[in-house]
């Protein structure tokens, strides 16, 4: 990349600006990545607890429904389940964790009291109640697990993206920009040196020319002076011959 850049001062300034911006961005992204990892670790702990609870609740619900099916019969359990048409309601909202939008799942009408389960109380047994209750607990756990695990996945994706950005800045963009900067600086220095050298040469040449000129002029001057002297010499004898009589 460095070789593609024109080694101009303008480009150097632009690259320096980009390096400054990238370094600032790199610092911010590193902080974001570290913050996200810390938040993720918290969510991970919660997710592990929720997973554990979910597995326990599932085992418990299975046990209860198995017992109810065994003791009350499949027909009675199916009948009790059929006595309810209403489904639990789930609403999702979102919250922001360090720029990551994660869902917040609210559920209603999952846990029900005895009179809300649809089946009559007088003709049923505690086995049906306990199976229904265990499944209500399981459903609550599933909803919580859905919320926590979705948040976890989103956080993980964001951490990956941020990490990639940090790495791209750290190992690709910034080194390339710095290479370019160095290249331009070297080129500019080289150009400067060349310029200086050129100027020096010009100056030397100019001085030489000037010296030559001066020499030539001096020579010419000297020559002219000599000629004048010769002329004077030729004129002087006549003058001398006339002057004693003249005085």
């Amino acid at each position: 990349m460095a070789k593609d850049v024109k080694p101009t001062r303008k480009n150097l300034m632009e690259i320096e600006d980009r390096i400054e911006l990238s370094e600032r961005g790199h610092g911010t992204l590193e902080k974001k990545r570290d913050g996200l990892i810390m938040e993720f670790m918290d969510i991970l702990d919660k997710a592990q607890d929720v997973r554990g609870d979910l597995a326990d609740d599932y085992d418990e619900a299975q046990k209860k429904i198995n017992m109810a099916r065994a003791m009350e019969g499949d027909v009675a359990v199916r009948g009790a389940a059929a006595a309810l048409q209403e489904h639990p309601e789930i609403t999702t909202e979102s919250k922001n964790i360090m720029g990551v939008v994660v869902p917040q799942i609210e559920s209603s009408r999952v846990s029900k009291s005895l009179d809300e389960r649809g089946y009559g109380i007088m003709g049923t047994s505690a086995r049906i109640d306990e199976a229904a209750e265990a499944y209500e607990d399981l459903l609550e756990s599933i909803i919580l697990a859905a919320e926590v695990e979705t948040a976890m996945k989103k956080m993980l994706r964001e951490i990956e993206t941020t990490k990639r950005r940090v790495n791209a800045l750290e190992f690709k963009l910034l080194p390339e920009l710095k290479d370019s900067q160095e290249y331009i600086e070297q080129k500019l220095e080289e150009q400067e040196r060349e310029e200086t050298f050129r100027l020096k040469k010009i100056k030397e040449k100019k001085e030489a020319e000037e010296a030559e000129e001066a020499a030539r002029e001096a020579a010419e001057e000297a020559e002219a002076t000599d000629e004048e002297d010769e002329d004077l010499d030729e004129v002087q004898p006549d003058t001398a011959a006339q002057s004693p009589t003249g005085n």
């Binding site: 006595a83 309810l84 809300e116 009559g120 109380i121 007088m122």
Partner: peptide
């Protein structure tokens, strides 16, 4: 209420 509870309870009560 839309729930079967009252009908089921009424039937069980009638029996007992």
């Amino acid at each position: 209420t839309g729930a079967l509870v009252p009908l089921e309870n009424a039937l069980d009560r009638a029996f007992y």
